[in-house]
Computed example of a mutant assay.
Amino acid sequence: MQISDLATALPRLRDTPARRWRDILIHPLVLRLLSFTAAFALWEYAGRIPLSPAFPTFLETLGGLGAIIADGSLLKAFLITLYPLAIGLAVSVLLGVALGVLMGLHEPSEWLIAPLFIIAQAAPLAALIPILTFAYGIGLTAKIMTVCIMAMPVIVLNTLGAVRNTPKSLLEMGRSFLATRSQSIRLIILPAASPMIFAGLRLGCAAAFIGIILAELLITPTGIGDVISYSQSVADYPKMYAAILAIIAFSVLFIELLERIEVTLFRPEGRA
């Protein structure tokens, strides 16, 4: 056999059935499915022991989920929950990114504003909800403020770090081409910072979902919080866990969508 024939045959030898199965098993989608399957199996087992009389099995929870979907209560609850969540997220993203970029470009602004967000990120923000209730009542404003104080610190600090960590080689290249300040910001700094800004947006969105559920449980039981509180009060634990599972699944899908947008826009090497 000639060397060229051997080189052609080697890939076929390596592409054995065992290797193909190995490639399938380590595929990210398969690993994610295995992870979810293992978690749901443990949930089912813990419910059948039972771990607690108030802890239903996974199948009972799915039954409760089907019931609240069929009677329309889940859809109504989501519409109520998503209204303050969407407003709070929009304010957090627009104001948070703007403040982060401002602090990254203007150092005195960082000295003035950044300590507030560093303290806010480290503080137990759930403890501030009673203060917000006292200041703004139990209406929509308090819930929007709760979403903002949960989401904005992460977005602001990630944006600040992204702008500050712009590669110096890119900035020097811009100066060598006589780029103006505005051109450097628009064509160099913001594109270079965009991936990290999107990472902050994902973290901020996750915090926002936590914030809106805390608000609905601690301020006024409305939306998903109302479904959770009412189901707990009447000891309908499958529906209670079904509502929790539904909001978790929705938040995971939303954050996954943001990641897909980030990959499409800023990480072409990950599109495949």
Rank of each mutant, 00 (worst) to 15 (best):
W111E: 15
I131R: 06
L128F: 15
M150P: 00
F134K: 09
T133D: 12
I149Q: 01
T141S: 12
I144A: 06
T133I: 10
A142S: 13
A123K: 00
P108E: 09
L140G: 01
C148A: 08
L102H: 00
L128T: 08
I138V: 15
L140M: 14
A120S: 12
L116G: 12
H106K: 10
P108G: 10
I149K: 03
L99A: 13
L140D: 06
I149D: 13
Y136H: 01
I129W: 05
T141M: 14
A142N: 06
T133Q: 14
Q121Y: 07
I131K: 04
E107G: 05
I144D: 01
T146L: 08
A123V: 09
P124S: 11
I113P: 05
F117T: 00
L132W: 00
K143T: 04
Y136M: 13
M103A: 09
G100C: 10
G100I: 04
P108N: 04
C148S: 02
Y136T: 04
V101E: 10
V147G: 01
W111M: 13
P108H: 06
I131A: 15
A120D: 02
A127K: 00
M103H: 00
Q121P: 03
P124A: 07
K143I: 06
V101A: 06
A142I: 08
M150C: 05
Q121T: 05
I119P: 01
P108Q: 02
V101Y: 08
L116W: 15
I118M: 09
Y136L: 13
M145Y: 02
M145Q: 07
V101C: 08
A142G: 00
A122L: 14
P108D: 04
E110M: 02
L99R: 05
W111G: 12
C148H: 01
L132Y: 03
F134T: 14
L112S: 11
C148M: 14
I131V: 15
A126Q: 06
Y136S: 09
P124V: 09
I119Q: 02
G104M: 07
L99E: 02
A142Q: 07
L105G: 05
T141G: 13
A127T: 12
F117M: 07
L102Q: 04
P115S: 03
I118D: 10
A126H: 00
M145L: 15
I138T: 15
I149R: 02
A127G: 05
S109E: 11
V147T: 06
M103G: 06
G100N: 10
A126F: 10
C148P: 00
W111K: 13
A123I: 12
I119K: 09
L132K: 10
M150R: 00
I113H: 10
A122S: 14
L116S: 15
A114R: 07
I129V: 14
L128R: 00
G139P: 06
L105T: 01
A126E: 02
P130A: 09
E110Q: 06
L102T: 09
L112C: 10
A142P: 00
Y136E: 08
F117Y: 12
A120Q: 11
A127L: 14
I131G: 06
A135D: 08
